[in-house]
Amino acid sequence: TFELKGKVGKVVKIAEDHYLVEVEGDKWIAYSDEKLSLGDRVMVVDVDGLKLKVKRIP
């Protein structure tokens, strides 16, 4: 999972307290300090167990 840091993915689902992002064909639970929208491109900035911390990228 640490090899996911720096990888780019996209938001595929928005849940009440987390996001579902697809990175390299796999779906992961993710969270972010900013509000994300469906389809946003994101970069993995940290890995916390099986959850990814992501940030939006242009």
Rank of each mutant, 00 (worst) to 15 (best):
V47R: 03
R56Y: 05
V12G: 08
V23Q: 01
A30Q: 00
M43F: 04
L38Y: 10
L52Y: 02
K35D: 06
K55A: 13
D26M: 13
S37T: 11
V47N: 02
W28M: 03
F2V: 15
D46K: 02
D17Q: 12
K53F: 15
I57G: 06
E16K: 10
E34C: 10
K5G: 03
V23W: 00
Y19A: 10
P58T: 13
V42D: 00
D33A: 11
G9W: 01
G6K: 00
E16S: 13
K53E: 05
L4M: 14
V11W: 01
K55C: 15
L50M: 13
R56E: 07
L36G: 01
E3D: 03
D46R: 02
L52V: 04
V44E: 00
S32F: 03
I29S: 14
V23E: 01
H18W: 12
A30S: 06
K51G: 10
L38H: 11
D48E: 12
L52C: 03
Y31K: 14
K7W: 02
L38C: 07
V8W: 04
R41S: 13
E16L: 08
I29Y: 07
A15T: 08
K53G: 05
E34F: 12
K7H: 04
K53Q: 08
Y19V: 10
Y31T: 06
E3C: 04
V12S: 07
G49V: 14
L38V: 08
I57L: 10
L36A: 05
V23R: 01
G25T: 08
I29G: 06
V44L: 02
L38D: 14
R56W: 08
L52K: 01
M43Q: 07
E34V: 12
V12Q: 10
E34L: 09
D48G: 04
A15G: 13
V23M: 03
I29Q: 10
A15L: 13
V45M: 14
Y31P: 03
I14V: 10
L20P: 01
H18F: 09
G9I: 01
K51W: 07
V42P: 02
L20K: 07
D26N: 13
W28Q: 02
K51N: 04
V42Y: 01
V45R: 03
G39I: 14
W28K: 02
I14M: 13
L50V: 11
V42H: 01
P58D: 11
F2A: 15
L52G: 01
Y19K: 04
